[in-house]
């Protein structure tokens, strides 16, 4: 499958984020849906998914219009994560 360290790290980070959500939910349940700024009901898991999906598109957009390096996109993505988890 032609593994490299960066791709392995990428998948490990995603898996860890999902496990974190499970552990968080187990020790401090709060997974009931709430209605956020977009008018949709989301649980914590949904917010994680929206964050990751958005991160993907932010990086692709940065690559298409500005190019490497991607530090700016990373900063934007972290901002997006914070926004989604607090407001959506």
């Amino acid at each position: 499958m032609a593994w490299t360290w960066p791709t392995a790290a990428f998948f490990i980070v995603i898996v860890c984020s999902i496990i974190t959500m499970g552990v968080w939910e187990k020790f401090s349940p709060g997974g009931n849906p709430r209605r956020g700024v977009f008018g949709i009901d989301t649980t914590r898991g949904d917010r994680l998914f929206i964050s990751w999906l958005g991160t993907g598109f932010i990086h692709l957009g940065w690559l298409a219009f500005i190019g490497t390096p991607l530090w700016g996109a990373l900063a934007l993505a972290i901002g997006w994560f914070v926004f989604v988890f607090r407001k959506v």
Binding site: M1, A2, W3, T4, P6, T7, F10, F11
Partner: peptide
């Protein structure tokens, strides 16, 4: 996973990346 791995590498066959 295979697709993600390929997307970051170049190959000319023979499993050399």
């Amino acid at each position: 996973m295979t697709v993600v791995n390929y997307s970051l590498q170049e190959t000319f066959g023979d499993n050399v990346f």
